[in-house]
Every structure is written in structure tokens, then in C-alpha cells.
């Protein structure tokens, strides 16, 4: 890697971090306003999450006496840094990922675990029984949603390996050849099932209702985050916001990699802008269906129900999807 490349990567990473944080907070605001409207309330201003973050930054940052200070302080940083680093592997609109040619789907699945693990470590390090229970629940939730998530990824990886493209696992390949164009009617149904699975895995990954059992404000007083305040809490919120963008961007890249500019004849720069805007819209649609709509319509699951939902129902759903995709490509 030469110097020019290095500078590109550094600047790109900074830009990505900025984009992730701003977009994450922005979508948090949209979510809160939409939820309020659906409850016949007016709701907070759109920039409320930015105000919240600014406020949290000015608050006192307490490290509890029982906590392990370095671990307690490191966890939020690791969570934010790892969420941002996933962004470097994901194509946004028609912008190729910064680490193009390096990461693939499998890597993203592994990286997605790190922010959640950082929260678990932070919870365990804060030395509060509530946080400990929250951390245990978070781990159980992670194990639960991993099955449908992995099945979906396997379906994609298998399909693209089957097509005989080079670099079959990379997101760029998936983006270049949308899955819908590669499958017949059976596979189409299979892909729809996989899409439903991914949309229902998203709230689990993000710890949103009905899968917010690890945080459970009413019973665990905030669970994992119970002892966090001030700057550390703000970092965790930022990492959740970035993670929301990351996850929806993965769903978009897997299922809706279409770009507007390829349908309209446009020169390079406006095309990029239009694609960027279109990408934001796609993220909004995914976010609306997988976070806002589900969050407003449901109450919280118990932890046993979370495992049931993910392993039994969504596990079965994604397996059926996988089998349909496989059968489809055998009979074609």
C-alpha cells in the first residue's frame, strides 16, 4: 500500500465515521418522531438525538466503585470503533467500500458480533447485578439470532459460489449481480423468506423492542447500560446508531443493491448524488419496517421467547428459504 492509498483510507475512514454517526443519530430521530406520530403524539424534534448526545457529553462520567475501570471505560470505545470499522466493508449507494477487495460477507457476520460483545464486557465490568443479568441475556440473544443470520448468509454464499463468479462471498459481487435476477420462482420465494428473516434479525441485533430483553428498562433498569452515564453512555448510543446503519446497509446490499443512476442516463457526479440519496431512502424503508413498525406494535419478549422466536420460527423460516434457493438452482 503506497502513501496515496494510505491517505485515501485514513480520510475515507474519517468520512465514514462521520457519516455513520450523523446518519445513525438522524435515523434515531426519524424513528422517534414516527413512533410518536403512530401513537398520536407530536413527538420530539427531529434533531433530538443530537441534543441528547450533546447533553450526555457535558454530564458527569461516573465510574462505579465496583467496576473494573479500564474495562468499563474501554468497552464503549471498542463498541463504537468496531461498528465504524464494519462500515468500511459495506458499499453505500454507488460508493464502493473503502476496503474493497478485502472483506467479505463472512467477515461482516463476525465483525457484527464485536459491538454486542463490547456491550457484554462493559456490562460485566460495571459490577452491578442488573448489568450482569443484562449481559447474560445479551449473550443468549446473540446466540439466538446468530442461527437465522448465519443461515441467510450461507444461502447467499452458496448461491454465489454456485454461479461460479470469482470472489463469490464479497459484497461487491452481490451488489453487481442482484440475487433476484439469479433465481427462478422457487428461489424468489426463498429469497423473500430470507428477507423477512433479516428484517426480523435486525431489531434483535439492535436491541429494540420486542427483543430489548437485555436492556429491559422496566425490569432491569436499563440492563447492560445501567451503570453507564455521561460520555460513556453517549458512546454506546452512537455505536448503536452506527450499527443500525450498518445492519440496514447490509440488508440493502444483499437484497436491494439496485441503483437509480443505471436506469437514468446521468453523468458521474449527479449519478453518485442520486444514488446516495436513493441509498438513504432504502435505508429508511428497511429501518421503518424492521425497527419503528415492529417496535410500536409489540411488547417485549421474555428471554425464553426470544430464543424460541429466533431458533424455532425464524430458524425454520430461514432454513426453508435456504432449501428453496438450493432446490431452485438445482432444477434450473
Amino acid at each position: 500500500m503506497n502513501i496515496g492509498n494510505l491517505i485515501m483510507v485514513v480520510v475515507g475512514t474519517g468520512a465514514m465515521a462521520l457519516f455513520g454517526i450523523v446518519a445513525g443519530l438522524f435515523y434515531m430521530g426519524i424513528d422517534r418522531v414516527l413512533v410518536a406520530r403512530m401513537q398520536a403524539r407530536i413527538g420530539p424534534p427531529l434533531r433530538q438525538p443530537f441534543i441528547d448526545m450533546a447533553k450526555l457529553m457535558t454530564k458527569q462520567n461516573i465510574v462505579p466503585a465496583n467496576a473494573i475501570p479500564w474495562l468499563f471505560n474501554a468497552a464503549p470505545l471498542v463498541a463504537l470503533a468496531s461498528s465504524i470499522s464494519i462500515m468500511l466493508y459495506i458499499p453505500l449507494g454507488s460508493f464502493a467500500p473503502i476496503f474493497r477487495g478485502y472483506g467479505d460477507l463472512i467477515l461482516i457476520v463476525y465483525l457484527l458480533v464485536i459491538p454486542a460483545l463490547a456491550m457484554v464486557v462493559g456490562g460485566l465490568a460495571s459490577g452491578s447485578p442488573y448489568a450482569t443479568i443484562g449481559a447474560q441475556r445479551e449473550m443468549v440473544t446473540m446466540i439466538s439470532y446468530e442461527l437465522p443470520l448465519a443461515t441467510t448468509i450461507i444461502a447467499f454464499a452458496w448461491k454465489y459460489a454456485q454461479l461460479g463468479l470469482d470472489n463469490p462471498f464479497s459484497l461487491a459481487t452481490v451488489a453487481a449481480t442482484p440475487i433476484w435476477s439469479q433465481v427462478g420462482p422457487l428461489g424468489f420465494v426463498g429469497c423473500l423468506l430470507l428477507l423477512v428473516t433479516m428484517i426480523l434479525v435486525t431489531p434483535g441485533e439492535l436491541g429494540k423492542i420486542p427483543f430489548d430483553t437485555p436492556e429491559a428498562e422496566t425490569e432491569l433498569a436499563g440492563g447492560l447500560l445501567v451503570e453507564y452515564s455521561g460520555r460513556n453512555l453517549a458512546l454506546f448510543y452512537l455505536s448503536l446508531g452506527v450499527k443500525a446503519i450498518v445492519l440496514t446497509a447490509v440488508v440493502v446490499a444483499l437484497f436491494f443493491p439496485y441503483n437509480l443512476s443505471s436506469y437514468l442516463a446521468m453523468s458521474a457526479l449527479p449519478a453518485r448524488l442520486v444514488d446516495g440519496a436513493f441509498f438513504l431512502v432504502k435505508i429508511f424503508v428497511i429501518m421503518f419496517f424492521s425497527v419503528s413498525l415492529i417496535r410500536i406494535a409489540m411488547a417485549r419478549f421474555r428471554i425464553t421467547q426470544v430464543v424460541d422466536v429466533y431458533w424455532k420460527y425464524l430458524g425454520a423460516l430461514s432454513l426453508v428459504g435456504l432449501i428453496l434457493v438450493m432446490v431452485d438452482s438445482f432444477i434450473r
Binding site: 410518536a36 441534543i51 428498562e217 432491569l220 447500560l225 445501567v226 452515564s229
Partner: peptide, 21 residues
Amino acid sequence: TPRYDVERFGLKLVGSPRHAD
């Protein structure tokens, strides 16, 4: 509740005193 909706002013109920103002 919708009648008064204090979330308009950014007020939010939290579960832990560590998060509270």
C-alpha cells in the same frame, strides 16, 4: 401520554438513575 406528550420537549423516562438528569 398523547394528551400532554412531554417528549415534545425532549423529556424521556429512563430506567436507571445513572442516565437521569
